[in-house]
């Protein structure tokens, strides 16, 4: 896909999103309410309209072929870049999805092993060191010091003895 095509697709997608936002804003009064001023929907409604108009402006420039992006025939995401960035993005999504199942202390080591070992090609030694040290420091910094309880999914019961020790 060329940058030029991507430009049009993005503007169209964002244009549709703006229309959705306009409808959603319209659930609240958009006009003037006596004694209360502008209704609650007015602010997001008019701004969504500006969003929509901006998208139309981008499409207008695309048709006229104005600007470096609208005229660029370069590849939007090169195949090898797509593989790497895509792998990172997907591994992030999988990691977050696993948060509510095996908890962050299950998913973060997996993420680290995937990234450091398989994307980075570092030794198993270094990989396992990082996969242990980082989650442990996170536990002590966030849970013990900051008292922010991080998601643990089904591994929650395993942490009860630890909670007893530190809280």
């Amino acid at each position: 896909m060329s940058v030029r095509t991507a430009e049009l697709l993005m503007a169209m997608m964002m244009g549709v999103f703006s229309i959705y936002l306009m409808f959603k804003s319209y659930e609240l009064p958009v006009g003037w309410i006596e004694g209360e001023g502008p209704g609650g929907g007015a602010w997001p409604f008019w701004l969504s309209l500006v969003m929509l108009l901006s998208c139309l402006g981008i499409i207008f420039n695309w048709i006229r072929k104005v600007g470096p992006i609208a005229t660029s025939d370069k590849v939007y995401v090169r195949a090898d870049v797509l593989t790497e960035v895509g792998a990172v993005a997907i591994s992030l999504i999988v990691t977050v999805a696993l948060f509510s199942i095996i908890g962050i202390y299950g998913s973060l080591p997996l993420f680290l092993i995937f990234y450091v070992r398989f994307l980075g090609g570092h030794s198993w030694m270094l990989t396992s060191a990082l996969a242990i040290i980082i989650p442990v420091s996170i536990f002590f910094f966030f849970e013990v010091t900051l008292k922010i309880i991080l998601p643990k999914g089904y591994t929650e019961p395993l942490f009860i003895p630890l909670y007893k020790m530190f809280f």
Partner: peptide, 22 residues
């Protein structure tokens, strides 16, 4: 490739910490 995953993890936890909502 060592720094990047650490920063990503900081981002994920940083996004969770203020509201504690997945």
């Amino acid at each position: 490739t060592i720094l990047a995953p650490i920063i990503f993890i900081l981002c994920l936890i940083g996004g969770y910490a203020p509201t504690q909502s997945l």
